[in-house]
């Protein structure tokens, strides 16, 4: 039953994933934490998903699947998350001809939806107490770097990992 629940969860996530992977990350968290993965596990999963090739939502599905049911879970969750997008592309020709939609209005509606989903993602990812001042600082610095400079986000992720490793190593020796 848990296996089916996992597949159904990622299928639903696939249906909503307009506008790229990050919009659904908040939803993935709402659906999977703490049922299949804990808070700390989820945040390192996201860092790994972002730092490795491939869309974030897809990578997150693979990892949550792996954590819960090993290789079969990883395969099932990955296929579940892409199922609807692929069906939509295959079926688009047929539906598109029957329904005459106004493309500009549709695009604007999807943009609003995407922004709201992105805000939901941010809401779910904001750090909760007890706060670790170093981690909070890392979050703020990475926001400024990525929002207002052209630094590659991958470098920010790896750099933050290195900084935290060094700080902890120093703390252990003091």
């Amino acid at each position: 039953m848990e296996f089916l629940a996992l597949v159904w969860t990622f299928f639903k996530i696939g249906v909503i994933s307009f506008g790229g992977g990050w919009t659904v990350v908040g939803l993935i968290k709402a659906e999977t934490v703490p049922r299949w993965i804990d808070e700390a596990g989820f945040s390192s999963l996201l860092a790994i998903a972002q730092a490795t090739p491939g869309p974030v939502a897809l990578n997150a599905a693979t990892m949550v699947g792996w954590r819960t049911f090993g290789l079969p879970g990883a395969i099932a969750a990955t296929l579940a998350v892409i199922a609807f997008p692929l069906l939509a592309i295959t079926g688009a020709g047929v539906i598109g001809k029957r329904l005459r939609l106004d493309p500009i209005a549709l695009k604007t509606a999807l943009k609003t939806g995407t922004l709201a989903m992105m805000a939901m993602t941010l809401y779910y990812l904001l750090p909760a107490p007890p706060f670790d001042p170093i981690l909070l600082g890392i979050g703020l610095v990475s926001f400024v770097l990525v929002a207002f400079t052209k630094v590659n986000p991958l470098l920010v992720i790896l750099g933050a990992g290195a900084v935290k490793t060094v700080i902890e190593a120093l703390q252990m020796h003091v």
């Binding site: 904001l126 992720i157 990992g161």
Partner: peptide
């Protein structure tokens, strides 16, 4: 420690995407 540091960037990255 490395994963904790890397994971801490994620809210910042998402906030940056939201701003953009």
């Amino acid at each position: 420690a490395f994963l904790a540091g890397a994971g801490a960037t994620v809210p910042g990255l998402v906030a940056a995407m939201l701003v953009k």
